[in-house]
Design a protein around this nucleic acid. Structure first.
Length: 195
DNA sequence: TGCCCGATTAACT
DNA sequence: GTTAATCGGGCAA
């Protein structure tokens, strides 16, 4: 049986946690799937919400690791992050894509579409499919409604530039499963492979 | 206070 | 390829 991820798993550099999450299973109230694509953000990173210090929105990022940071994107969508590293380092992993495996009917109903590939491929889309809202901000990742299971075996992970940012756009802090059709965008052919 | 810009998405031309 | 939807934060006035 796959191992549950605890708060200790997240108490490491965000750049170690991010690739380790690829292939792990995320369920919210029993609905979800396999993590396919994530991005790392750190307080020293100009693209991070925490870069300019704590605000009401990003307060969870400044707390202990192993908790969910959920924020409103473009005033419309929700986006889910996992807080990493020791309290105060204000780093987090943005969850960008999931391969839906459990609760397909619930996800299709929430998204209003049938196409499996588009159910959870994108940070806003997966939050809609999993029913994630502001109510999940600050909740522990090792307790219900969350359920996180370590990946079973190895994964081929690619890295490349993050999506949709203008600051620090050159940093290769996007991580994703090689060849997955559930990526929000494919990786460049020259993307570095790590395991 | 007002204005601009986003870690986005779907529906346009 | 372009644009609307819509809200929190940053910053100028």
């Amino acid at each position: 049986m796959p191992k549950r991820l605890t708060k200790r798993f997240f108490d490491r550099s965000v750049h170690e946690v991010a690739p380790d999450l690829i292939g792990a299973t995320l369920l919210v109230n029993g609905v979800g799937g396999r993590l396919i694509e994530v991005e790392a953000y750190h307080q020293t990173d100009p693209a991070a919400h925490s870069f300019r210090g704590p605000t009401e929105r990003n307060a969870v990022m400044f707390g202990p690791p192993g908790y969910a940071y959920v924020y409103r994107s473009y005033g419309i969508h929700w986006c889910l992050n996992f807080v990493c590293e020791a309290k105060g380092s204000a780093s987090a992993v943005l969850i960008r894509a999931i391969e839906p495996t459990v609760g397909l009917a619930a996800m299709r109903r929430r998204r209003g579409i049938a196409d499996e590939r588009l159910l959870c491929s994108g940070p806003g889309r997966l939050c809609e499919a999993l029913g994630i809202t502001r109510a999940h901000n600050g909740l522990a990742l090792d307790d219900p409604p969350f359920r996180l299971l370590a990946r079973d075996g190895e994964a081929e992970v690619l890295t490349g530039p993050r999506i949709g940012i203008t600051k620090a756009a050159d940093k290769p802090w996007r991580y994703g499963e090689k060849g997955s059709r559930f990526l929000s965008k494919p990786f460049a052919a020259a993307a570095t492979a790590i395991y």
